[in-house]
């Protein structure tokens, strides 16, 4: 009996100390982690919105000006992009859907004609080499040279297949072998984003 108590105490102590350590580190790193995630999101928004965009509506405070506010439809966030004259150029929708391992945070840029400009995965936990086939954009390089024109956004056949289709009826993109679940996650996220965009447009 005494032995069992000792074992329980040891295991409990290890768990408690571990939890305390995690809580502490979580508290310390929460601010910087959120800042890093926001920086990644900003970078993504700039990519998916039309290139002429100079200002993005990012305010989440209630008392901010209507024009500068992020629109929230269900759990999708809509960021409006404006040019230097203050005219709306398009909307970037941030939507998440569950892939193979956890949510896939997807950004969908839609222009004023309701056409999908670009789809980008901002954050995910998919398996490298398999799930990432449908989430990561990477440039094809060659050891034989000819890598000069790799400055633009690197291609991804799966994500690029959405480009050009209408938000009212997003294209049904074929799955990729090895990344079926992850691909479904991206597709669901794009569908959610388009649904929110359509709801917003029909309300305004």
């Amino acid at each position: 009996m005494k032995d069992i108590m000792r074992l329980c105490f040891s295991l409990g102590a290890v768990c408690l100390i571990g939890t305390a350590g995690l809580v502490l580190v979580n508290k310390i790193t929460l601010g910087p982690r959120e800042a890093a995630a926001k920086a990644t999101l900003m970078e993504g928004l700039k990519i998916v919105l039309p290139p002429e965009t100079t200002k993005i509506a990012l305010e989440t405070k209630e008392d901010a000006e209507e024009k500068d506010k992020v629109i929230v439809m269900d759990d999708v966030k809509l960021y409006r992009g404006y040019d230097s004259n203050g005219d709306e150029l398009g909307i970037a929708c941030e939507a998440s859907a569950v892939g193979f391992s956890g949510p896939i945070q997807t950004l969908v840029g839609i222009n004023n004609d309701g056409e999908i400009l670009c789809v980008l995965v901002a954050a995910h936990n998919e398996t490298p080499g398999l799930g990432t086939l449908v989430t990561d954009r990477k440039a094809q390089k060659s050891i034989w040279g000819g890598n000069e024109d790799s400055d633009g956004l690197p291609p991804n056949p799966f994500l690029d297949a959405f480009t050009g289709s209408k938000a009212s009826a997003p294209k049904n993109v074929d799955a990729i072998s090895g990344a079926t679940q992850s691909g479904n996650g991206v597709k669901n996220a794009v569908a959610k984003a388009c649904h929110a965009y359509n709801a917003y447009k029909s309300a305004n």
Partner: peptide, 22 residues
Amino acid sequence: IPCYIVVIAVFVTIVEMLMGAY
């Protein structure tokens, strides 16, 4: 063994959080 699992999981999670932050 359970103690090692806890220690390793805590260590990896801390590394993950620190990497995400800094």
